[in-house]
Computed example of a mutant assay.
Amino acid sequence: MDLRIFTEPQQGATYDDLLAVARATEDLGYDAFFRSDHYLAMGDGDGLPGPTDAWLTLAGLALQTSRIRLGTLVTSATFRHPGPLAISVAQADQMSDGRIDVGLGAGWFDAEHSAYGIPFPSLGERFDRLEDTLEIVTGLWTTPAGETFDYAGRHLSVANSPALPKPTQSPRPPIIIGGLGPRRTPALAARFADEFNVPFAPRETVVAMYDRVRTTCASVGRDSDELVYSASLVLCCGESDADVARRADAIGREPSELRENGAAGTVDEVVAKIESYREVGVTRLYLQVLDLHDLDHLALVADKVAPQLG
């Protein structure tokens, strides 16, 4: 089981906060450091000191880490034009010596679009734009050097592009697609994804979504075993019930709710929860860490949980 640390810096974090977590992630033996790509705090928090840009962050971390993979869960296709996005990701991949994964989604948080002047079209158009973005970024990355790339989509097009620069990874960085959509999400995953992620869902939902993706892969002639199947869960682990309660309180959640919906509880409880997701086909788990100053939390899981997972 690959364990990846997943952060939500829009809730309130500086680059230095994220750097400290990324370095702990690397030093403690985790597989990767990921961050959300959002511009507005959610819930009751004030979000101070304000958002950090996902790809600027990952470019900085590319130079200040050496082993862990780095990526987004997920970059919204509404945030960036696909050409500049392909350039930014390729450059970050070069800076990291080929350690970038890129999660791409349609976008869903209307308020952050309004807050920062980003157009927020209908759901159908957002998925159309996501499909166009996937076509364009993969096309730009995989077009042979010296050739040009053209694409005419429903909403986004490129013409006579030199398709530069190229990422370090060949043919391209791994693409993660995820979510709970019953139709277009599996279709896009079957066509474009290297990994399919189900976020914050019970095991039965994970199974259903994996089945949809596998069925869709078969319908388009793709081997579904080519994909990595992952999930995301909120982390709240403690050596005692008191520790669990303290960590739950620090992120404004109830221990009982976290035990039901997250990777939460004592060490043995967290091991059992992770194993239960492994049993339904999860091979990579994103542990959402919401208190970025509690680096002892990461150390506890690395020292006491990870060795039991084999």
Rank of each mutant, 00 (worst) to 15 (best):
V213C: 03
D128Q: 10
R172Q: 13
A193I: 09
P82F: 02
L140Q: 10
T138G: 09
T205Q: 15
Q169E: 11
A145P: 05
A115G: 15
G179C: 05
D101I: 11
S122P: 13
R172F: 08
Y151M: 10
V206N: 04
D211W: 08
L188Y: 08
E112L: 07
L188A: 11
S170G: 12
R203K: 12
P165T: 01
R212M: 03
A86K: 00
P199W: 03
Y116A: 13
V206P: 06
T185R: 12
D211E: 15
Y116K: 02
M95S: 11
R212E: 09
L164G: 02
T142K: 07
R172Y: 13
I176Q: 02
R191H: 13
E204I: 02
A159V: 07
I175G: 07
R80H: 13
A208Q: 13
T133L: 07
T168K: 05
H81N: 14
N197Q: 06
R203P: 00
I175T: 01
Q91H: 01
S96K: 01
Q91S: 12
I100V: 14
Q169D: 12
P167Y: 00
I87P: 06
R184M: 15
A90L: 04
I87D: 02
I87H: 05
H155P: 02
G178Q: 01
L180W: 13
S114Q: 15
E147N: 04
P182H: 04
A111G: 06
G83F: 01
D194T: 14
R129S: 05
F196L: 10
R191V: 09
L188G: 11
P186A: 10
Q94E: 15
P119Y: 10
T142I: 06
Q91L: 08
A159D: 07
G107Q: 08
T205L: 09
G103A: 03
D97H: 12
Q169N: 11
D101T: 02
P144R: 11
D93M: 02
E135F: 00
G83M: 02
G103D: 00
D93A: 06
P171Q: 05
T142P: 11
L130C: 04
P82C: 09
Q169L: 06
N197T: 06
R126H: 08
I100A: 08
S170C: 05
G139D: 13
E125K: 14
Y210D: 11
L164H: 00
P167A: 09
R80I: 04
A111P: 15
S114G: 10
R203L: 08
A145K: 13
I87S: 09
L85H: 02
L134G: 03
R172E: 07
